[in-house]
């Protein structure tokens, strides 16, 4: 062995390199099969940041398609239900600039739930078919109602209703969901300038 190396340094080096490349090639080949990632991980991460209202206001049929589009390079400011917070989170994740919400797709509204005016409901089931999260309960020719805890406030049931009996009602502040607000914006000026700037 040593003799062969000393006698044929060129050949020995060649064999060594070929041997190493074969070993590492095999290891890498095995690893690429063994640790294969299913799907696109960045799409999943983007999708997790979206509010999952499945409202389609972004122009895509649901949150995942929009996440896929963002991964392909679509702008991140097309999600009105997520609003500024979602844009901020997406910008953080993708390390891009924070854009203001695209006005074409709508504006950020306070959180609300759909409420069916039950006296007026004719039982057409159109809203049930429209609801992306199965939050509407009812059957043909029977009154429908919204399961408030499941409703994402996506608006999609309002349009199909032939008798226009669905309202989007803002979630009221109660003792249960009340919380402290941030103090009014501080001036951040020195005391001697108080109120002048």
């Amino acid at each position: 062995m040593i003799e062969f190396i000393t006698a044929n340094p060129l050949l020995a080096a060649l064999f060594a390199l070929v041997g190493l490349s074969l070993i590492f090639g095999a290891v890498l080949g095995f690893a690429s099969e063994r640790f294969k990632t299913e799907g696109d991980p960045i799409t999943d991460q983007i999708c997790d940041l979206l509010p999952q209202t499945q409202c389609g206001q972004c122009g895509y049929p649901g949150c995942r398609p929009y996440a896929e589009a963002i991964a392909e390079g679509e702008r991140i400011n097309r999600c009105p239900p997520g609003g500024e917070a979602t844009i901020q989170a997406l910008a953080n994740l993708l390390d891009t600039e924070v854009l203001p919400l695209d006005e074409d797709v709508g504006e950020e509204k306070p959180k609300s739930v759909a409420v069916i005016r039950e006296d007026e409901c004719i039982g057409c089931t159109k809203c049930i078919q429209a609801c992306p999260v199965d939050a509407i309960l009812g059957s043909a020719k029977h009154m429908h109602t919204v399961i408030a805890s499941e409703c994402t406030g996506c608006d999609l049931c309002v349009e199909p209703c032939p008798v226009d009996c669905i309202d989007m009602v803002e979630i009221p502040v109660t003792l249960k969901n009340w919380h402290w607000q941030n103090p009014a914006k501080a001036n951040d000026i020195i005391a001697t300038d108080g109120g002048q700037a």
Partner: peptide, 20 residues
């Protein structure tokens, strides 16, 4: 807390959407 609740709700909505 609100953000955590929202994330949970979003996850729940996602599951329901996918189930549907």
């Amino acid at each position: 807390r609100q953000a955590q609740a929202d994330t949970e709700k979003a996850e729940h909505a996602k599951q329901r959407f996918e189930a549907r």
